[in-house]
Design a protein around this nucleic acid. Sequence first.
DNA 1: TAGATTGTTAATCGATTAACAATC
DNA 2: TAGATTGTTAATCGATTAACAATC
Lengths: 215, 215
Amino acid sequence: MESQKNISPAVIKRLPRYYRYLGELLNHNIQKISSRELSLRMNVTASQIRQDLNCFGGFGQQGYGYNVEYLYHCIRRILGLDKSLCAILVGIGHLGQALANNSLFEKCGVRLIGLFDIADNLVGTAVGGETVRHFDTVGDFCAENRVDIAVLTVPRTETQAVAERLVRCGVFGFWNFANTELSLPDDPVKIENVHMRDSLMQLCYRLTNEGEILT
Amino acid sequence: MESQKNISPAVIKRLPRYYRYLGELLNHNIQKISSRELSLRMNVTASQIRQDLNCFGGFGQQGYGYNVEYLYHCIRRILGLDKSLCAILVGIGHLGQALANNSLFEKCGVRLIGLFDIADNLVGTAVGGETVRHFDTVGDFCAENRVDIAVLTVPRTETQAVAERLVRCGVFGFWNFANTELSLPDDPVKIENVHMRDSLMQLCYRLTNEGEILT
DNA sequence: TAGATTGTTAATCGATTAACAATC
DNA sequence: TAGATTGTTAATCGATTAACAATC
């Protein structure tokens, strides 16, 4: 169950979804589930579920299935949600404020420990129970606090520079909401993009090109 | 160039990214680009670029490459960004407000024509230049206006019911921000999910399992 | 024990890359 | 014409599915 090598991105991408469904089963007090039952609920093949889970170890029992609570906690651990990672949020615009007020971090076991911006009318104010700090002070903050993740909700044009500065501060995890790709040293740095604009465009594509012809 | 059948999801997913890079080339007044040059910038293979583009037609010229402006506009058309699709936003919480104030829709050629919620303290107020309407009136609104897309930023527990009601109103495009899967008739309905929580979890996974061992 | 269901290997499918003939 | 680069076919690679022996 320790960090396995060579897990394919496709598998990693499915883990949160398994975790989500298992959480729901848990809420419904369902104690065991077979790959077949779960496959019907999730609309994937039972084969894929067994294959995916076996990347990380044998969590099931032949003839029985999987213990929901046990599997749920295993996936939680695999995802690293029990690590209490620490995050800062940079760029306290509309989207930044929405994220700061969201239960998202909590649900992922991530602690949001700092908010940063450069606007005078924001710095010093409280957003979601945290005081906004000036981004100029981010170096000191990172020296004094462990920062695993920086959430980037700054304007597109600033994103690259902000990220580079944070890398120099020792921050290696980036959750990027800007509509652009970051180019940062691949090795220690991990980037996860939320390209909302790309997502909306895909919806536009499918509405105009698939199914009913749209005017 | 008309709606092609059987375009793989992998290709569709890459289109917005091509569009993005071409837009940047256009901003830099670059008039032509070869698949090789573009592949270096985008960090993909030239083969893939040519293969992808050829799903929709021959946009290039042997010995020359691709005309940036022409290709940009072709992809724009393919994505349906010139269709002036109409969207409503349901759920005007923090995230809904952030989206309403975002240039995202504009950039996708989508017109945000209505905001809906049920909270008395929100209904009637103006958000991002639009007045928030009560969701009870959404039926009338859809009867009087073309609505292609509903952006769902309502609480997780409400999402399915809200979506079902909208389908009955003739809305078939859903941009879903709730951390749950919608189950709706597959045929006319197109759903695009933005699973931010899943995204953050993937980042947590990679930070804890790949590269440096994290405490 | 018999029935069920996993873990795992083998077969299939799809997507990516390489190669090259067509052609500007 | 010669050089460059596309469009497209063939080869490779990876991911998904099917099958089944192991085993609870």
